[in-house]
Computed example of a mutant assay.
Amino acid sequence: MSIKKHPMTSALPHKLLAQVLAQFGYAIENCKITLLGNGLINNTYLVQTLDNSFVLQHINQQVFNAPRQVTDNADLISAHLKIKSDNKSYPLTPIYQLRSIDNKNHVKVQGQYWRSLHYIPQCYTLESITSVEQASLVARAFAQFTAALSDFNSEELAEIIAHFHNLSIRIKQFQQALASAEDTRLAAAQTSIAFIQSQQTFIDSIAEITKNLPLRVTHNDTKINNLLFSKATNQPVAVIDLDTCMPGYVMHDFGDMVRSCCPSIAEDSAELDNMSINFEILTALTNAYIEGFNGSLSEIERRSLIFGIKLMPFMLSIRFLTDFLNGDRYFKTTYASHNLVRAKNQLQLYRLFCQQEALLTNIVLSAPTSNT
C-alpha cells in the first residue's frame, strides 16, 4: 500500500524528486514529502514511507561549489563521533548519511547534488532560547561536539568554504562588492558601509589574537536550530548540519551561538530600537560552554571568547551587506532589502556588545573551568 501524497508534494519539483528518490531506492508514489526546517542555504525535505523516514537534502552549489567534499567531510566526522558515542565519551547521537543504490553518500541528478540523511523521530528544534536552562543545554551540547573532535586530525577535512570565518578576507570581499555595486544599493547602504569602515581597530585586534589560537574542528554554524531536542525529555539529542564543519577556532562557534541566542529580536528584524541582550542567557551559555570542554580550553582560547562575541555579528553584518551589494546571490531573501536589514541588525548587535565589553570580560573570565 502506498502512502497518499502530501499536498505539499505537488508544489515540489516532482519529476526531479522522483529521479533523486529512485537513486536511493524509493518510488515517489510511495513517499510522503514535506519541506523540513527553514535553513537559508539548502532545501531540505522529510520523506516518509510505510517502512521508514529519512531526510532528503539538495546541496546548494552556489554556496558549496564542491558538494562531494561536503558529504565526504560529513562521513568522516560522523564516523569519528560514532566511535566516541560507542565508547560513551560522546553523549549525543551522531547524524549519518545514508547510501544510494550505488553505495555513495550523494547522488547527482540533472547536474544537482543530493544526499539522504538519518532521521531521528520525536525531536524538535528551537528558533530561540526561552530559559537559562535551555541555554545551558545548548552551549554544553555544542562544546561536547567540538571537544569530541579534539583528537580528530583536522587535515583530513576539506576546507568547504575557503576562509569562511576569516575577517580579513570578508573585508576584501566587502571592498570588492563596494567597487562593483549598483549606485542605488550603495546609496541605500551608505550608513552601514561607513560604520564598518570605522572599525579598523577592532579588525586589527582580531588579526592579532588569531595568530595565537589553536585550530580545532569546529561546527561553524552553531545556531540554536542546528541542535535537535527530544520531545520526551527536552534534552539535546544531536548536533545537525555539518556542512561547514572544518578547521576553525572556538571563538567563532561560541560567538555565533551567543549571536543567535541572546538578542531580543530576530536577526532579520528591522525594529532595532527594541534590541537588547539577555545577559542571564549569555552567562548561562558561557558557563556551560566552558564547562563542556571539561578543562581542555587553553587560557588564550577562553579569552578569545570575548572577541568572538563581538566578532560574529560584526562579520555576519559584513557578509549580509556584501551579499546585498552583490545583488543577493548567497543568502535566501524574501524582499529587496532583506540582506540590508539583516546587516543593520547585526551591526546594532555588535554595537551593544561593544558597549558592554567590561561585563562580557567578567562573565567569560569568571566562568567555572569544568563541571567536575
Rank of each mutant, 00 (worst) to 15 (best):
L321H: 07
N345A: 01
S317W: 12
N345F: 00
S317I: 05
I318Y: 03
S337M: 09
G327F: 05
A336C: 01
F314E: 01
L340V: 03
V341I: 15
T322I: 13
L347E: 05
L349M: 15
F307K: 14
Q346I: 10
D328W: 04
L347N: 10
Q346Y: 12
D323C: 10
M315K: 08
G327D: 04
L349I: 14
F307W: 15
I318Q: 03
Y335G: 02
G327M: 02
N345Y: 00
N326T: 01
Y335W: 06
F324M: 00
S317H: 10
L349A: 12
T333D: 04
K344S: 05
S317P: 11
A343E: 04
G327V: 07
G308M: 07
D328M: 01
V341Q: 06
K332D: 06
Y335M: 01
N339T: 03
H338S: 06
F314L: 09
R329Y: 02
K332Y: 08
L349P: 13
M312W: 02
L311Q: 15
Y335S: 09
N326V: 00
I306Q: 06
P313N: 14
N326A: 08
Y330F: 15
T334N: 15
F331G: 05
S337E: 14
Y330P: 04
P313E: 13
A336F: 13
F320C: 10
L340K: 03
N339M: 09
T333F: 09
L316H: 15
L321Y: 12
T322Y: 10
F320S: 02
A336H: 12
R329V: 14
L325N: 10
N345V: 01
K310E: 08
L325K: 08
A336E: 11
T322P: 13
Y330W: 07
L321F: 08
M315G: 00
Y350I: 05
